[in-house]
Design a protein around this nucleic acid. Structure first.
Length: 296
DNA sequence: AGCCTTTGACCAGCG
DNA sequence: TCGCTGGTCAAAGGC
């Protein structure tokens, strides 16, 4: 079975597979071994992203652009930085899906995610589970927000090359993302610096937790556009997730997908597109009116 | 010491 | 009811 190129740095380590994941037989994990490489790439990507956001505000600079250029860059972070994903909403069913796919041909170098932290999205996450998912070469990881009384969870799926293909957020943060509750570690110092810089840039867009409840933003359009109809909606445990399940064939697709569903009105206005409200409707079962938006 | 990851076991939904 | 599958728990160990 082929395994991600990045899994074998320099091709010097024999690998064994665990749930489809090549594992280093040595004490040092691949994650550790590659953290350094990734850190550099991620830092580069973040700084680039920052620059774009800062100097090209009128340009629809999506995470996928960055992903194309910097595969190591985290789409989730890009989205949050670009769109100022609110930390929470008033609706407990708020959720978000982020997805990205990459073309193998677009990358010459495919660094692994740094550590097992799929995103440095401003929150602290603790991994509480990992599960091999049927049909998936890589296990799905389960994370919980470590903030007190915050029950937000997220699932992270990776493609066969180790890249994050989907992040599903579940729930809402009841706290601000600017937690910085501890000194950075694991070589995240650079991230911390970067984040600080980013935070200052987006300060004007910051939204307090639970301050918005609007969803089905413009992203919905993208969703409909990109979601495959052949993807059955998860029948099991549809629970409180209002996420848009994204079809990610995990095959070679030239364009990465970035899909976000949010209730934030801010996102509506700050997703890089201009939206014109053309209707408002009370939706059964939803205390909040649905806003219909179109890209201008 | 505290936090985190790992991982097997357990639980629950669905066909 | 049973098996499959996804999600969660919690002990153990590492950092």
């Amino acid at each position: 079975m082929a395994f991600p190129q990045w899994m074998n740095v320099g091709g010097m380590f024999p690998s064994v597979e665990v749930c489809g994941i090549p594992q280093s037989p040595f004490g040092m994990s691949h994650q550790q071994a590659l953290a350094q490489v990734t850190a550099q790439a991620a830092l580069h990507a973040q700084s680039q992203m920052h620059m774009q956001a800062q100097y090209q505000p009128s340009t629809v600079t999506t995470a996928k652009d960055l992903l194309t250029q910097y595969p190591s860059f985290n789409p989730g972070e890009a989205l949050q930085q670009k769109q100022q994903m609110p930390p929470s909403t008033s609706d407990a069913q708020n959720s978000m899906v982020e997805a990205a796919e990459f073309s193998h041909s677009e990358r010459k170098y495919q660094p692994p995610p740094a550590g097992d932290k799929p995103t440095d999205d401003g929150y602290n996450w603790r991994k509480y589970g990992q599960k091999c998912i049927k049909g998936s070469e890589y296990p799905r990881s389960y994370y919980k927000c470590t903030h007190l009384n915050c029950s937000v969870k997220k699932k992270v799926e990776r493609s066969s090359d180790g890249q994050i293909t989907e992040i599903i957020y579940k729930g809402q943060h009841n706290h601000d993302r600017a937690q910085v509750n501890k000194l950075s570690k694991d070589g995240d110092d650079s991230n911390g610096i970067t984040r600080k810089d980013q935070e200052s840039t987006k300060a004007d867009h910051s939204e307090p937790p639970g301050s918005s409840d609007n969803e089905e933003a413009g992203n919905a359009a993208v969703q409909d556009e990109e979601r495959g109809d052949d993807e059955p909606i998860p029948k099991r445990r549809q629970m409180d997730v209002v996420t848009s399940e994204v079809t990610l064939p995990h095959k070679t697709v030239t364009e990465p997908k970035i899909i976000v569903q949010t209730r934030s009105e801010v996102d509506l206005l700050d997703d890089g597109y201009r939206w014109r409200k053309y209707g408002q409707k009370v939706v059964k079962g939803n205390p909040h009116p649905r806003l219909e938006n179109r890209i201008r």
